[in-house]
């Protein structure tokens, strides 16, 4: 891969005005190559979700630019392309809670994402993805009847439906226990390595950091690479 999947340059974002203003992103630059899985660490309120929203073309930063596949897509808060179309075709999202569409069953959730991205043969693809994530047996179940882990697998299947070049995950394992959260993290690693996507995962879970190719840490809106786990992995399981 020549150009990185996504590249952010000097992103700045401030919430609020005057004395109450919070600088959620402070001159953040970042480049994610395809086929790598990166962790985004940092204390609560440090700006991790804000960065995910900026990279995911959901809430653009006020200053700086985001390049996607080498092309400038957002500059100083102004969209230079159809952001919804971009998300639909090239991005996959996974959140803390699975956030599946409640009125669709597991297969339909994935199928809809295939359909939105313009992929043919959505049902077959959906089945394949659910099999890939080992939740085939629940494909006709509604989200509310799935366990947290199953929901998260379906959500990952959905995020992969459009063969994304960038997958953004905001605390995808927060609702899972240690063993399951490790399984999910390893799934993301497979996605990056086998499917060639750039994967950025916000996590507080320091037990599975060995899964990642790159580690970043945020503090007060500033991003810096973390070469080793910034905090010693905690041995005490919840």
């Amino acid at each position: 891969m020549d150009a990185p999947a996504v590249e952010a340059r000097r992103l700045t974002k401030t919430y609020g005005h005057g004395s109450g203003a919070v600088r959620a992103l402070d001159d953040v630059s970042l480049s994610l190559a395809r086929g790598t899985v990166a962790a985004l660490l940092g204390p609560s309120g440090s700006g991790k979700s804000t960065l995910v929203k900026a990279l995911g073309f959901v809430s653009p930063a006020e200053h700086g630019e985001v390049r996607f596949g080498g092309r400038v897509v957002v500059r100083d808060g102004v969209a230079l392309a159809d952001l919804a179309a971009l998300r639909r075709r090239h991005l996959g999202f996974v959140f803390q809670k699975a956030n599946l569409t409640t009125f669709l069953d597991a297969r339909e959730n994935v199928e809809l994402a295939c359909e939105l991205s313009g992929k043919r043969d959505g049902r077959r693809r959906a089945r394949e993805l659910l099999a890939y994530l080992e939740v085939s047996h629940r494909e006709r179940s509604y989200p509310e009847t799935l366990s947290g882990g199953e929901q998260q697998r379906v959500a990952i299947a959905r995020a992969l439906a459009n063969e994304p070049s960038l997958v953004l995950a905001d605390e995808p394992t927060a609702a899972l226990d240690g063993a399951r959260s490790r399984v999910v993290m390893e799934l993301f690693r497979r996605v990056a390595h086998e499917r060639g996507a750039a994967v950025l995962i916000v996590t507080h879970d320091h037990r599975a950091l060995d899964v990642f190719d790159v580690l970043y840490e945020m503090e007060d809106g500033q991003l810096r690479p973390a070469t080793s786990p910034p905090h010693p992995p905690s041995r005490s399981s919840p």
Partner: peptide, 18 residues
């Protein structure tokens, strides 16, 4: 009731017309 579902669908890039 569907607010959250709608937000997710929008995030996935579902066109408004849909």
């Amino acid at each position: 009731e569907k607010t959250h579902d709608l937000a997710v669908l929008k995030l996935m890039g579902a066109p408004s017309a849909r």
